[in-house]
């Protein structure tokens, strides 16, 4: 039974009826007042059967202190499902105020969401890294990007040519005279001013890209007016430091990056 407000002054609710809108299984027609409520089991498919459900006769509205103001339906026949599965343990006890645990519940949910975001960020970072790294040089390209040259194979005064990244690579074992001559060159005579010391790491080893800076021909070693390189295409003369001395080329021969891992080898690239 639900609480029915009753005052001594007036009876606001004088009539309590069971909820007729959803009859409990049995289709016994309950009588309310003088109207017959038809059994609900019958399907209301036609306008006739629907008309049976509506009230008949004239509608009357009565109001006043003594009259019935409203009808309260006692929902004793409605069963509310058990939702405790969806409730947190902290709020299951109906005698405790839920505000006590509000902050910890909220913090817990935020923490779980934060952890999920961290894991998602980790996964996303790895996926992005995977795709981005696929754009970098592949292993076979990297394997060819460096060339290791045994210096002992190159006698003094000789220029050896290697294929490196599709271009000719000159490794020149310079003689003492060549070194002395290149060291002594007056820098004011040079078109592309660079001292010999800036072009070699070890004086006896000159490492160059064998591409003429004019139009990209391959110069011939130990030829030309300056004893270094001579480009047969348009007659550019380079000295034994690979510097342009005469002819149309504007710049000195390019020096690639290289290191000497030990005395006997050079690693270019």
């Amino acid at each position: 039974m639900i609480n029915v407000p009753k005052t001594s002054m007036m009876s606001a609710v004088s009539l309590i009826v069971p909820n007729v809108t959803k009859p409990v299984v049995k289709s016994v027609a309950p009588t309310v007042g003088k109207y017959l409520v038809p059994p609900a089991k019958k399907a209301t498919l036609t306008s006739y059967s629907m008309s049976l459900l509506t009230g008949k006769g004239a509608m009357r509205v009565t109001s006043g202190i003594a009259s019935t103001a409203q009808i309260r339906l006692a929902h004793t026949d409605l069963r509310v499902p058990d939702f405790s599965d969806y409730r947190r343990d902290a709020v299951k006890d109906s005698n405790k105020p839920t505000s006590e645990s509000a902050s910890s519940r909220r913090a817990f949910t935020y923490m779980v969401i934060g952890a999920g975001s961290v894991a998602t960020a980790y996964a996303a970072k790895n996926v992005v890294t995977m795709f981005v790294s696929s754009m970098s040089a592949s292993a076979d390209v990297l394997a060819l990007a460096k060339i290791e040259i045994k210096l002992a194979d190159i006698p003094e005064g000789k220029n050896a040519t290697f294929k490196w990244r599709g271009k000719p690579l000159f490794v020149r074992h310079r003689t003492a005279e060549e070194i002395a001559a290149e060291q002594a060159v007056d820098l004011s005579q040079l078109r592309d001013v660079q001292h010999d010391n800036d072009r070699v790491q070890k004086e006896e080893w000159l490492i160059l890209l064998g591409v003429c800076t004019h139009l990209g021909c391959v110069p011939i070693a130990n030829a030309g007016d300056y004893g270094g390189y001579y480009c047969p295409c348009h007659g550019s003369h380079y000295d034994a430091s690979g510097r342009i001395r005469k002819g149309p080329a504007p710049l000195n021969l390019e020096i690639p990056e290289y290191v000497f891992p030990d005395e006997d080898t050079v690693l270019v690239g």
Partner: peptide
């Protein structure tokens, strides 16, 4: 302490 810790975390971070 746990709920106060949670509260602090909520106030400071979340």
């Amino acid at each position: 302490s746990l709920s106060s810790l949670a509260n602090t975390a909520y106030q400071k971070v979340f």
